[in-house]
Design a protein around this nucleic acid. Sequence first.
DNA 1: GATGAATGAGGGTTCATTCAT
DNA 2: AATGAATGAACCCTCATTCAT
Lengths: 206, 206, 206, 206
Amino acid sequence: MSTAIDRSPEGGPIPRGGGREAIAAAAREVFEQRGYHGASIRDIAKRAGLSLSALYYWHPSKQDLLAALIEENTLDYFRRCDEALASAGEDPADRLRALVKATVEYRVQRQTESNISSREWRNLEPSHEERLAGLRTKASTIWSDIVDAGVEQGIFRCEHPADARRSAQAACNAIAQWFDPSGPVTMEELVDHYTRIVMRIVDLRP
Amino acid sequence: MSTAIDRSPEGGPIPRGGGREAIAAAAREVFEQRGYHGASIRDIAKRAGLSLSALYYWHPSKQDLLAALIEENTLDYFRRCDEALASAGEDPADRLRALVKATVEYRVQRQTESNISSREWRNLEPSHEERLAGLRTKASTIWSDIVDAGVEQGIFRCEHPADARRSAQAACNAIAQWFDPSGPVTMEELVDHYTRIVMRIVDLRP
Amino acid sequence: MSTAIDRSPEGGPIPRGGGREAIAAAAREVFEQRGYHGASIRDIAKRAGLSLSALYYWHPSKQDLLAALIEENTLDYFRRCDEALASAGEDPADRLRALVKATVEYRVQRQTESNISSREWRNLEPSHEERLAGLRTKASTIWSDIVDAGVEQGIFRCEHPADARRSAQAACNAIAQWFDPSGPVTMEELVDHYTRIVMRIVDLRP
Amino acid sequence: MSTAIDRSPEGGPIPRGGGREAIAAAAREVFEQRGYHGASIRDIAKRAGLSLSALYYWHPSKQDLLAALIEENTLDYFRRCDEALASAGEDPADRLRALVKATVEYRVQRQTESNISSREWRNLEPSHEERLAGLRTKASTIWSDIVDAGVEQGIFRCEHPADARRSAQAACNAIAQWFDPSGPVTMEELVDHYTRIVMRIVDLRP
DNA sequence: GATGAATGAGGGTTCATTCAT
DNA sequence: AATGAATGAACCCTCATTCAT
């Protein structure tokens, strides 16, 4: 239901807290809907219920805002992965199941953040890209470490672990693009489906 | 027919044949590098070695240019798919192998076009989006028809065909994002790898 | 007399010619009146009777506009000096008289340009400053060459040629700041007065 | 009394005594380096080591800050002139020597202040300009009174006292623009040089 | 087929200033 | 005596687009 204030085409205004977080929340939505270059800083400010200049009080530039968002999202995802893996034991199959579960859940619960992170990396300027390069690497190694271990131990029989890893990641990441929270599929079901798919991709034999 | 050679990855205008194709070629590169909103019509004209107004002689607007590109790319991809499927027989496994082959080859040979199509659909304005909606649908059904047939016939044993189809597509489409033509992997190897992966995703049992 | 169009607080609009020169003329006036940082590119466009974007069609930036103006002014001044000196013979006293005449006339006839050049050098960004550094040097040497020659030949008896040169230049340059074209003093008188003063500064003895 | 030491030519906040003077010192530097319109009140606050709002506690606006600075500088200069003239006797030549000495010393010792005063008068808004108009006048009459007296008494033989006065002032004032405290010329030498030059400008005959 | 010149809207950003605390 | 947070106006500049030629 739209409010009297014309600031939000859908979902109502977002007065979730003081400046900094209100802006971040608004930026997440606008960046997701319009993309980095299609998003105007004025839209973000309006959506946040703040003036244009207030935005600059909290964030030095549109770029920094994007970089901050991406960094925050990525760290949040890693935190979830690390927690899941910490209680997953040593077995590569168990670890991979935990990683798939953490990833699918993140893609579903943090759909907006997932889409921003995957689409807008390319719009980071060199300085930020370099600063965050380590995160990109980790996003790959967190998967390949497990897949490689499983292959080494003979648990996963896929012949091309690199492509298997890329396929598994691509499949899980794509969820954020099409998942409809109001649709019939639950997150638990998705976790189940994608766990099976990924296990077949790496060719786990029982 | 445009060749693989007429691509200049960085800098320098492209004094290809006549206006229309020069503009399309330039637009492909600029849209891929900067994204639709990040790309300026001036950049495209400059890259095409033409004046700004010449561009408007051939294309009525930036939007139309994008829509034309996406449509062209998609039709090209479908042509390849249709050809491959025409000579593939009736067996769902054979047909899926043919589709994977056509898709992987397209992602490798038409990397730029692939990336534009997947990234920039969202920047089509409603009128164009509606006009091209059928293409989007076909991009799914071309896969799901085969997967569903295979499942029905008991050839593919995957329990969740919709998710299997999405995973297979996501895996193949992602190739355009990371493939490095100067890297060690050949297209033929990729076709082989991804065929195996997709067959495992749909759970083909020999 | 002000016109119906509200674009010029004084002096009426300046439709002296096509884009480029109209802008330069407007920029000269606005830069002189408000200084570089105090001048807004919008004011300049309005004064030139053009849109804001037309200005950018002709000049890539406010900085370039300033640099172009300064360069143009300075070259114009040097042209006058060179002509005057070319027909002045070898005698340092004659040459200095010619230089004073050329300078005073330029300060009077090109008052606006003179003031911009002297005040706004400091607002040139490094790249432009470096490019134009040679002009700055010449503006000094054109004077000091003559003064030094006169001192060497015993014609000028001033003990401190460097300070004499600086004083003479400062005196002549200041004219542009206070000269009132509607006042009682004519340019010819000024040339006469300042010639005498400069001759005394370098201590010419008859 | 402020000393010559409390000047930090580049960078670093200035944690001098209390707010008011810290701000004035910072403003002097920033106004000199960037000019009134090029200077930002934020730069000044930062340089003063204070918050933006603290600056507004002490000075009601950027304009007032500029006016206060100019007034202070000018009064300081006049104080020095008056002291010098008070102990100079009645002879116009002696008085002129004293004025040159006081002026050159001020231009050298208060280079920043000199440059602000000469460059930024034009950026005073009408109300302040009117209030300080008397100071501008005095800056002229303090020189012309002496020159005129000398001419009347037949001590100075220059034919055009007004231009002589302007030239002398321009020569002395320019010192602040080029003087390099780390250079080879001492202030005492400069006083000597410029005294001779001014005496020749007014055509003192021994 | 193609151009040079121009435009109005909007881009990101900085400004001097204010106000509750 | 000083601050952090916020504002509206204005900044320089770039955008997609148009139009007479």
